[in-house]
Design a protein around this nucleic acid. Structure first.
Lengths: 211, 211
DNA sequence: TAGTTCGCATAACAGCGTTCTTTTAGAAAA
DNA sequence: TTTTCTAAAAGAACGCTGTTATGCGAACTA
């Protein structure tokens, strides 16, 4: 049965491609986390993987294509941070915890966060598709906010408020990363907490009686 | 009088150095504004000025040194935006206006803002001195906030609140620049306005009776 | 078995920040 | 005025970068 042999070969080849692809991304990821975005050059990646740069270009097209995958990985990691947050307490504390989880992710994975939200790699800017995929990682935050409302039309409103809160957290994280908060008496999480309390107090309905 | 001739020569030389320095920075600045941070290479700058790269290195040491000057120029421009804000209305509206002026500066000078607050140039990170000099541009905001308080101990408190508001505005601007707000029904300034109102309501004393 | 296609490595190209070497213009000295 | 010296600038070079062209060898097709 030659056709079967061919099929098996194709399948094996496909499998090999997939394994190689994941291996490359794993190596690029550890390179990014251990040595920062500056170390993320096509040559370094190829060297780490143990192949030539040609493989990277046939596999991902160009550097943008490779970083795109890391970009999405970053949002997956962010989502995992958010999903790990317990929502046993009341909604208000849950929302605070989500925001602090967001900050924890950013601080523990600064190199990833820089790719996702700062322009550390001149050759890379996420396209529209990836921007939307990334935003989906904030679904949990939007859901928690929607749960604060009882009305029917609250879907869009929840996303709007989620964006306000997201932007606020992002701003604090961004300035903290640029060391703009280095010489302050108040710690960065405390400053963030203040802003969050203010936003929740003003933008969300009274949550005292929520679970 | 030979010593006078020498003095005049030295002075003329000094003057020439200063003119050249400013000319280089002007050219680099227009390069940055017209073609973005990617065009800001030592070779392009030298070509625009009409000299060799050697001149840039003897004058500024390295690229970091040259960008340092642009970084400070950016904060000067930001300060001018803030100083142009009329503080005739009440304090609350003045603070809002300062924040929107900040956003206007950022949006009108995205390339400058990127240098100041995003890491668009891998070779450049501002040092501690410049970070502090930059922060001083927010003096007007801190002053306006301090004016909201009557007590004596309000200096530090005003700076803390200023940082909260600053981070919030920065976050909104940063996400807007990364196009994360592109597909929203609510405009970016409206989202920002919401966040600001919430912060002012919660963090500042009642301002109804202020001038 | 002969021909072809495909995957990969090697080498190259243009451009980057930076530095080394060489030229040159102009002040100082004679 | 002519020579000498110095300081500044130009140009080439080095080791990087992303990307592309070339070439080779192995595996499928006929």
């Amino acid at each position: 049965m030659r056709t079967n042999r061919v099929k098996n070969f194709r399948a094996a080849q496909e499998q090999h491609q997939q394994n190689l692809r994941q291996g490359i991304l794993d190596d690029a990821s550890s390179l990014l986390m251990q040595e920062g975005a500056n170390a993320l050059t096509m040559r370094r990646i190829a060297e780490t993987v143990g192949c030539s740069t040609t493989v990277l270009y046939t596999m991902f097209g160009n550097k943008q294509g490779l970083i795109d995958e890391l970009y999405l990985r970053g949002f997956d990691m962010l989502q995992q941070y958010l999903e790990a947050v317990s929502h046993l307490g009341n909604l208000r504390n849950y929302i605070y915890a989500l925001c602090h989880a967001y900050r924890n992710f950013a601080m523990a994975n600064q190199t990833y966060y820089s790719i996702m939200f700062l322009k550390v790699i001149p050759e890379y800017t996420p396209d529209e598709t990836n921007l939307k995929l990334g935003q989906a990682s904030l679904k949990l935050l939007a859901q928690a906010i929607r749960d604060c409302f009882t009305g029917e039309e609250s879907e869009d409103k929840a996303w709007e408020i989620a964006r306000v809160i997201w932007a606020t957290v992002h701003g604090h994280v961004g300035l903290e990363m640029m060391n703009y908060f280095n010489y302050s008496d108040v710690s960065a999480p405390q400053i963030l907490e203040r802003a969050l309390q203010a936003l929740v107090n003003e933008l969300l309905p009274d949550l005292d009686n929520s679970q």
